[in-house]
Nucleic acid binder design. Structure first.
Lengths: 179, 179
DNA sequence: GTCTATAGTCCGATAGAC
DNA sequence: GTCTATCGGACTATAGAC
């Protein structure tokens, strides 16, 4: 029961992954999806609407993981902050190329990131209000951002081993926060 | 003695700052600079060459500050890592819009970031080889990346006060590393 | 809901005069 | 080194048939 909408979004992701964000044209999505231009534009009335939907779907994937970790922590009566931090740490972008391209597209239309901004703000508030030491929690969150963006941009001045060490240290910092 | 080259680059930055990266067309630079298209394309044989030059100039601005901090630390025989960390912390992008746009442009041509990548790798190596505890130093560097990217994307889930606290903590972490 | 066809716009790059 | 003029390509979006 993959909807037409979803299969068009799949096609759009494929185009970006294979050819980059600049090649994300409606015509390219038309070619990739097998639908016609009119058909695609029926489901997404313009290119911006398509981008919005792509970002929405991508954000939803992160939400699933983080929310699962949150409710699990709540059920186990264990602290929230470490749970969310760990969920964010283990979340790997399905495809960096797609993420970067969408991010790049958002540079031109900052409103596109609004839903993501709001979600992040809420989650950060959850973490900070739960954390005995907010500054430590902030540093952990920002470090994770740093890791993600470096991975996204392929800067990776960090080896996999170093990454492991950083992750372990962050988790330890979170745990020690509660003792 | 502002060279023609430089004034064209200035014009390009103005265009991006005012209208965003998507509007960074050669025609727009032509209009902004007052030169003709032929004139602009004499100095930058195509758009990629223009982007390269813009990134190069932007990187050079960071290099100046960081290298100054490095040599100052060396002269005072004080530790290198805190000096570089502090320099990176205080460095504020002259214009976030321009940075984001150039970053976005680099999404399509990752090679554009190669010079920046190499510079960053070198500096990180400098910091890590000087730091008694590399993991702590890495977390500081990644936190700074997180701060910068959040500022760039306007996500800023962080208040100015929180930012101050984080900065102070990072500096303290760097100092304690040596004791 | 999906198709074809096309209008209308913008852009990068070249050629060649001065 | 700087200019004008212009070509060729690519893109979004609309109109209207099926």
């Amino acid at each position: 029961m993959t909807s037409t909408r979803d299969s068009i979004l799949d096609a759009a992701e494929s185009v970006v992954a294979r050819e980059g964000g600049a090649r994300l044209t409606i015509d390219a999505v038309v070619g990739e999806s097998g639908y016609s231009k009119g058909g695609v534009l029926y489901h997404f009335r313009n290119k911006t609407a398509l981008l919005e939907a792509m970002l929405e779907r991508m954000l939803a994937r992160v939400e699933v993981e983080v929310d699962a970790a949150s409710t699990r922590a709540k059920a186990e009566a264990s602290p929230l902050a470490p749970a969310i931090i760990e969920a964010l740490l283990t979340h790997r972008k399905s495809d960096a190329t797609v993420s970067v391209a969408l991010l790049a597209a958002s540079a031109e239309q900052p409103e596109l990131l609004d839903p993501a901004r709001e979600y992040v703000r809420n989650k950060v508030n959850d973490v900070l209000s739960d954390a005995p030491d907010p500054v430590t929690a902030l540093i952990a969150l920002l470090t994770i951002d740093g890791l993600h963006f470096n991975e996204l941009l392929g800067i990776d001045y960090i080896t996999p081993e170093q990454r492991e060490l950083v992750q372990a240290r962050l988790i330890r910092m979170m745990q020690e926060m509660y003792s």
